[in-house]
Design a protein around this nucleic acid. Structure first.
Lengths: 228, 228
DNA sequence: CCGTATCCAATAAGATACTG
DNA sequence: CAGTATCTTATTGGATACGG
């Protein structure tokens, strides 16, 4: 009975494969299922646990998340590992190869942002807002700025470091932060992309550094298309 | 009755939207349905007609193709136009914005090519093999080569032009081709990527130019991952 | 708390035949 | 050729209950 089910399932998977050697067709086979790309996005800045993923992907159900994680593991994009003691907690981690897709996916996101249908009023996750900084950083606005800005979104910790007109982001505590911004990921949207001043949220440390930092981002122009 | 159906449908579409302002989530909403990315790929080198698309997307059914084209049109990615007389035939054409996604999708394809699960023995479409040349062109192998190679895949015509270690591709007849390669898209795979000599297919014109040209491509290395 | 397994209803995809 | 119409099958997401 179970064997039959498994066989049926693999036959189905066969049938759902594209008969197409093009790499792009395979990309769709790897990441084309609903939620898969967003699960990977959440892993781009480091390992996460199941409940974090579920919390940051509003609308996903536990069984679907389980299924996507298992599929991504089967395909070599995700590893199920255990954090070193004393944490000793189980986490999901993107493989190096999966991380290589990160910059490409960010570019795809920036492209889709130009859609007239895009709704920026929806919520964003912490990872999403951090990645958006990386993607929409405008080197020409950086001037001689050189500092690290730390972010506290609830319990989550991230940082963004600017030097020589290059920005790098990462997760974890920042040792050398000139300023720390404490708010929710959603609070950052009007500040980074709506021209709002940084002091509408809590800032610790060098507030001028934080204020300069948040003016270094710009969104791409909307596409000139008509759509129903 | 009909109104009710439409309302139900739009409510359903609402529900399927991600509550996520991240551009990547919107990219999935734009291109995430099955076949959508491959339909767009087929339009990246110029307008195509319904039957060509159906023929080059093995396995797609007419109703799904209709639905994808309508959706892509609604979303501003595709325009339904009519070729100028005397052709006067209806074609589907990617918008400028949709074409901007082309290079990103090609990079995603090159990334997915590194998957251990990728099956290069599947067939490729004419557009896919031409795009793969653009994507996998290795400038360091071009030397001082400067010439245009024309391709005839059945009735379809494409060209690839190399100058100053830069390759450009396009569709249509090439006026100044040094050589013309006449075969099927699948025949090109072993020649471009398997080291096979170009003269296993029909070549007209300067065969040495064709032979040099087909050695200018290299695939990315496989990812170092285990997968079930 | 961290998931996993199973069932159910809704909907999307696919196969096939058919029409202007 | 360019799609529609109809029927069947597969997948999804939500609820619920269960195991470590």
């Amino acid at each position: 009975m179970k064997l039959e089910k498994l066989t049926t399932k693999s036959v189905q998977e066969e049938k759902r494969r594209f008969q197409d050697a093009c790499g792009l067709a395979h990309a769709v086979e790897l990441l084309g299922e609903r939620w898969a790309i967003l699960v990977l996005r959440e892993l781009l800045l480091g390992p996460r646990r199941f409940s974090e993923l579920k919390a940051d992907l509003p609308g996903i159900s536990a069984n679907v998340l389980t299924q996507r994680l298992t599929e991504l593991e089967d395909r070599g994009l995700v590893r199920k590992t255990r954090l070193p003691p004393p944490a000793s907690v189980q986490v999901y981690e993107a493989t190096e190869w999966a991380l290589d897709a990160g910059p490409i996916l960010c570019q795809l996101g920036r492209w889709a942002f130009r859609s007239p249908r895009h709704d920026a009023s929806q919520p964003v996750s912490a990872v999403a807002i951090m990645l958006s900084m990386q993607t929409n950083f405008d080197a020409s606005l950086a001037g001689d700025f050189a500092d690290t800005i730390a972010f506290r979104f609830g319990q989550a910790r991230y940082w963004a470091k600017v030097a020589d007109r290059v920005l790098r982001i990462g997760s974890g505590e920042a040792a050398d932060a000139g300023a720390t911004i404490i708010c929710s990921p959603d609070d950052m949207k009007p500040i980074l992309y709506g021209g709002a001043p940084v002091d509408i949220v809590q800032v610790e440390g060098n507030i001028d550094a934080a204020a300069r930092f948040v003016r270094m981002f710009s969104l791409p122009p909307k596409a000139n298309v008509v759509c129903k």
